[in-house]
Nucleic acid binder design. Structure first.
Lengths: 230, 230
DNA sequence: GTGTGACCAGTTGTACACATCTTTGCATGC
DNA sequence: GCATGCAAAGATGTGTACAACTGGTCACAC
């Protein structure tokens, strides 16, 4: 059997259908979660289509998926609106995320190899630089990179999928609420960086369960701080 | 504020867009999970469209959602194929389901009221009748009803959504594998019915955590029996 | 000034024609 | 008899025109 995509180079011109879909999905999700499209924004299928150089049809499929993921909601005759969330709904998702993150250490944990630890060390270094100069936008983007990396500590595919779904549901709401509550974002950076150093220690000891519990505690405390200030 | 769907009676003619979508989605998902469309079946958008009295467009949206849920996979030029799963992938989903089911007792548990207990009692009675006369089809349908009912024991909406997703991913594969492994389905009925009676006891005592642990143990043992016979 | 009703611009939902791709079966050369 | 190529059928993906619907604006009666 040959490759499913014949004569495909890594940096080739015509992407497959799935790749095009994934690219548009990733782009729009990033904009929503980085608050380029804050909650309440009305997205236009037509303008998105012209921006991505395609027709409305593929854009509509992406928006339908984002609707299933809870990030937007389409209303006939009105538009496709970026969803908002009250603190109550956010709390439910956070509680679930806390428990599922704790599960990462027990469900098919992956012992990190040298390359993984080095990659994580680079992340810690990059985080140290961001503490002083970082904008909320850069901080969130950094947080996403860390999350995607740590996701590889479990080989349980469905668990990964669920965690990713819940992460993108909460991150943007947290960011917006943190800004509105005048949370000290620089202080949040610092706390996050401490967590990363603790995680690095755990990873060097190949202790996935400890790493999972550190993340779990971080998520829980992060939400508690938000609740206290709002 | 008035109803989102003005002048809507329970049995009214013109359904809203969301309802039509939900109806088609439910129908096709039922057929997949009841093995009317066994794994490998090629679904045709055109014939589904004519059956539901619509065009391909709404059907395509439903199939896209089912693809995101992992139940089908669309391949350009070939068709939309009902997915299969090997025992390894199934094991990962089962492990996750076991843990999440255990969480139901701790994340926003709902104390069952009298109406709920009565509804469950009727389910137990219905189950007793099915033990002798039931076909695999009826058994699975009954299992779905029980699952949907027990889902209401937690008020955590995201947890419900995740559990439902994982349930429909595994149920049909379990059923197919159970038939192929020549598992004694009548014996499985009986064990399931014992579980229901134990659950009824727990519900009467308002002990949601016990109910969650009973379900958890049931799911775990059910999969173990399957593994031993395959 | 105010309430009311009709129109209009803009949006999502649907239907359909066409493009692109895969499979399959058959004809043809050897 | 067999391999090979080609064409045709049928599937999903895409583009586009139109239907259905909403929110706002503006003219007009009172």
């Amino acid at each position: 059997m040959r490759n499913r995509s014949p004569e495909r180079s890594p940096a080739d011109g015509p992407l497959s259908v799935r790749d095009r879909h994934a690219a548009i999905h990733h782009q729009i999700r990033q904009r929503i979660c980085l608050l380029s499209y804050p909650p309440g924004t009305r997205l236009s299928e037509t303008s998105l289509a012209s921006e991505f150089g395609t027709s409305r049809t593929p854009v509509r499929r992406v928006l339908a998926r984002l609707e299933d993921e809870g990030l937007v909601q389409s209303v006939h005759g009105v538009g496709t609106i970026v969803t908002d969330a009250d603190i109550g709904a956010l709390e439910q998702v956070y509680h679930l995320r806390v428990e599922l993150t704790g599960l990462m250490g027990r469900l098919d944990p992956v012992v990190p190899d040298v390359a993984f630890v080095e990659r994580f060390e680079r992340l810690v270094t990059r985080g140290r630089e961001i503490i002083d100069t970082g904008t909320p936008h850069e901080f969130t983007r950094f947080d996403m990179d860390v999350f995607q990396t740590l996701l590889q500590l479990t080989a349980n595919i469905p668990l990964r999928a669920v965690l990713e779904r819940l992460y993108y549901q909460t991150k943007r709401i947290w960011l917006q609420a943190a800004i509105e509550a005048h949370l000290d974002l620089k202080e949040e950076f610092r706390i996050f960086h401490h967590e990363l150093e603790a995680l690095l220690q755990a990873l060097r000891s190949n202790d996935i369960e400890a790493a999972a519990h550190i993340q779990r505690a971080h998520i829980s405390m992060s939400f508690k701080r938000l609740q206290q200030n709002s």
